[in-house]
Every structure is written in C-alpha cells, then in structure tokens.
Design a binder for these strands. Structure first.
Lengths: 243, 243
DNA sequence: GCCATTCAGGTACCCTGTACGCAAATGAAA
DNA sequence: TTTCATTTGCGTACAGGGTACCTGAATGGC
C-alpha cells in the first residue's frame, strides 16, 4: 500500500482514535503545528525548520514526519491554525459594510500578530477549512446585496487583495529589518534611506516625490491608514453594483 | 575599508570603466542576471541557485560573488530586468482609463512570461529603477484627474494589488503543479480536485459552492477574465473621486 | 508468549548560501 | 623590464537545510 500519494494535506487527516496494535503516538499534528507557530512568531519563518521544531519538542527531526508528510504541508497547517483566530459571528449582520469591515480588521490583527502569515498565504494557493470559513462569511455578507455570484467573488477578492497588501506594507519594513538583523529605525535610515533620498534628489520621478514628500497619509497611525484604504475599497464596492 | 556595508543593491552599482591595475572582469552583473532569469523561466525559481547559474556560465559558484553581494540582491536585479520589458510611452495619453489598462496588460504579460516574478515581487519591498518608472507612469496617468496625491497613490496601489493577485491566480495552479512535478491537468484532478469535490459535496459552504458551480467567469478565457476584473477596478477608481 | 504493527529517533545523503584563501592576471610605477 | 599593489577566478570548507532509510522499542490482538 503506497501511502505517499501526492494529495492535499486536508485529504490526509491525522488518524486518531485508532485502537489497533502498535506504539501510541507521543505527539500530535496540532502540538507540532502550535510549536511551529510559536517559533515563527518569535524568530521568524526562516527559523522554523524541522530540526528547530523537533528540538523544541525534545525529539528528533525525523519524528515529525510521522505526523506531517512534508514541510510545506506544515505551513498549510500553520496558516489554518492562526486563521482560526479570526472571530466572526455565525451569520452576517445584514449590514455588509460593517461585516466586511469586521473581516478586514480581524484579518489585519491576525496578520500583525503573525508577521509570517500574509507572506506565506499570498505565496501558496491553499484552501484550508478556516480560510473557507472566512471566505464564506465574506461572501455571505454580500449575499442579497450583490446578485451575481461572480461579482460577489470579485468584490471579496478585491477586499482580500487590499488586506494582504496593506498588512504586507505594515509588516514589510520591520520584517526586512529583522531579516537583515538591523532594528527598524536603523534599517530605514541606513539601508533604504540613502537610496530613496538619492531618488528623490535626482528629481527623475516628480510624482513619486510628491507621494513621499506631500503625503498626509504617511503621518497617520498605521491603524488610521488601514481604515482609510479600507474605506476606499468599500466605497469602490458600494459605488457600483446595485447596492 | 569595510566593503560589506549593508545597503541596497541600487546604491552599489557595478564599477565599470575602471582603468586601474588588476585582472579584467570576465563576466558582468547583467550577464549573470540574464542567465538567472533564463533558468528561472525554464526551471523555476527554486532551481535558480548560485551553483546552477555559475555552472551555466561555465564557472564556479563563488565567482558570482564578485558581481553580486548576496543572492537576494540578484533577485532584485532579476525583477528589475524583466520589468524593463514593460513598454510604456514617455507620457500618458490623457485618457487615464486606457493608460492604466495599458500598464495592467503589460504587467500581466510580463508576469505570465516569468511566472516567478509576481511571487517574488510581492514578497519583498523592492524599489528598482524600472519599478519606479512604471509606478511613475501610473501616477502620471491619474495626474490632473485625481487631485490628492494620497488618493493617486491609493488608486495605483489598488490597481497594483489587482494585477498581482490576478496574475497569481492565473499562475498559481500551473506553478504549484510544476513544483509537485505533475502536469497541470493531473494536478487539478488528483491533487486539489478531490478536496474541492469533498468540500462542495459536504455542502458546508453554500456560497463557495455557488462561486464554483454557477460561475460564468470561470468559463471565460484567462485574458477575458483578467479584463473583466480590471474593469471592476477601473470602475471603482472612476466611480468615486472627482473624475 | 508470540507477532504484526506502529512510533521514536539516529544516521546519512545531497543540497544550499557563502566565508576564506590562494593563484593568476593586469596596469602602473620604478 | 622588473616590481608590485590590486583585482579577478575559483577551489575548499563550513554550517545549515529537507528528508529517505533503518533499527529498536513499545503496544494490542491472537
């Protein structure tokens, strides 16, 4: 019996409540995933190696492969685990605008708590149960207001795109700073600062310059900026269609 | 003299037209980048290793480090090189809608020609000269129609987000299929197919089901789908603001 | 008690990026 | 022409990575 069929992790559930012969498992998929999330939160995704996770659990690297087929599958499990943190009511309220706002703010919070989430999520086409739950809620928020299912999916996609790129912008600098080992302030000044200054001073890109120099947005708090952009997206949804 | 100052690749130009003593360089940053792009196009980004590139050039891996400080910097150079393929007039036409459409279609074409581009681009906050050029053109397309610079940047960001996620959706399946070594059709049927079917048959996500089963969009060609979504974004820009 | 089954964990292989060092090449100076 | 500082080419080596495979221990059914 070939057990290494190449199929999604969601089709290969951990076999539980087995009562046949054999040694009892000492760990669990959930426990391994939780440990991986913890390491990724504190030390970054690139520190989340099989050896590191196993070491944290006090075991050997190869033991993990009894629970997870591949490392990439573990990433899918990690994504699913933290998306579980997005708290949504069972049914949308009927006010699509506040429902989608709730999704956006919850998703942003999760993305900021786990800086590896969005980069990982937008890099792989995963479809775990928790992502399906959030997706379904967002679709349901528009149900009744937007009639065409393709439009609904399109709007939810737009919202999703905004959340991802906004969170990435918020995280981007600090993450890159952590990767290069500098603190954010030093990184901003010594690493990218000189280049941006050179570009600005060259005067070759006047509108880019204005977006840097005259921006009022950039003086707002990150949360206020997010809200601002979110409203732009929601206005875009509300303005067209038959809402 | 410490030459390993941690600064952006764009601040560390290849020193050319040197006429001092020392051996003449046998390669060039441009040549190395071109080779890397070629490998990434045909074999994927994960095959684009320093050793592989050097082998293609008929040299040793360490020789490359005379031209490129780090591997990540080479990625930045690769991004810049293929974004150069995006052909735009010197000045926008005055019709912001067709100008932004041009940017979108050109960017999509580049993304499809180089399937590694978008995943790489949305994973790192890079700001090469070519990206600045395209960004400036998109801003200029809205100049005069949108007065507030923050709004201009916001709209351009929305467009950018759409292009990225649309291209990623187009590429996603075939890329993941290539990564797992299956052809796209097999992958769709054997890898993700069973899971989606299970989800659909469970009936747990009725609107997700509708978006799969009743979608008219999914029967369109990829190009037509892209156009459809693009118009949604442009409508969003046009509907609000004072255009 | 026997035995098929299952897990823990070590070893090993091949791959990666890249720090380091030395030999060869080169143009300027002596 | 000889010398020499300088720069490149490239082999070696190291610290890590994912994971295939194997051995020994544990476990429940017969």
């Amino acid at each position: 019996m070939s057990d290494d069929q190449p199929t999604s992790i969601w089709m290969r559930p951990e076999r539980l409540e087995r009562s046949g012969p054999g040694r009892r498992p000492g760990y669990s998929r959930d426990q391994i995933t939780r440990t991986a999330v913890q390491i990724a939160d504190t030390e970054g995704l690139e520190a989340t190696t099989m050896r590191r996770i196993a070491c944290e659990l006090g075991t050997g690297a190869m033991s993990l492969y009894r629970y997870v087929p591949k490392r990439d599958d573990l990433f899918d499990l990690m994504i699913d685990m933290v998306i579980r943190e997005i708290e949504l009511p069972d049914q949308p309220s009927g006010d699509w605008r506040s429902d989608l706002s709730l999704v956006a703010h919850q998703a942003r919070a999760a993305g900021l708590r786990h800086p590896w989430l969005v980069p990982l999520l937008s890099g792989r086409p995963t479809l775990g149960p928790q992502l399906l739950r959030v997706h379904e809620f967002a679709l349901a928020a528009l149900d009744g207001f937007v009639l065409d299912i393709d439009d609904m999916a399109g709007y939810v996609g737009m919202l999703n795109d905004y959340i991802h790129s906004a969170v990435r912008r918020e995280i981007g600098w600090q993450e890159e700073a952590r990767r290069t080992g500098l603190d954010p302030e030093t990184w901003k000044r010594d690493y990218v600062g000189p280049y941006v200054r050179q570009v600005v001073e060259s005067g070759a890109y006047p509108l880019f310059n204005r977006s840097i120099l005259e921006s009022r947005m950039s003086h707002l708090s990150p949360a206020a900026r997010f809200q601002h952009g979110l409203e732009r997206v929601l206005n875009g949804i509300g303005a067209q269609g038959r809402i």
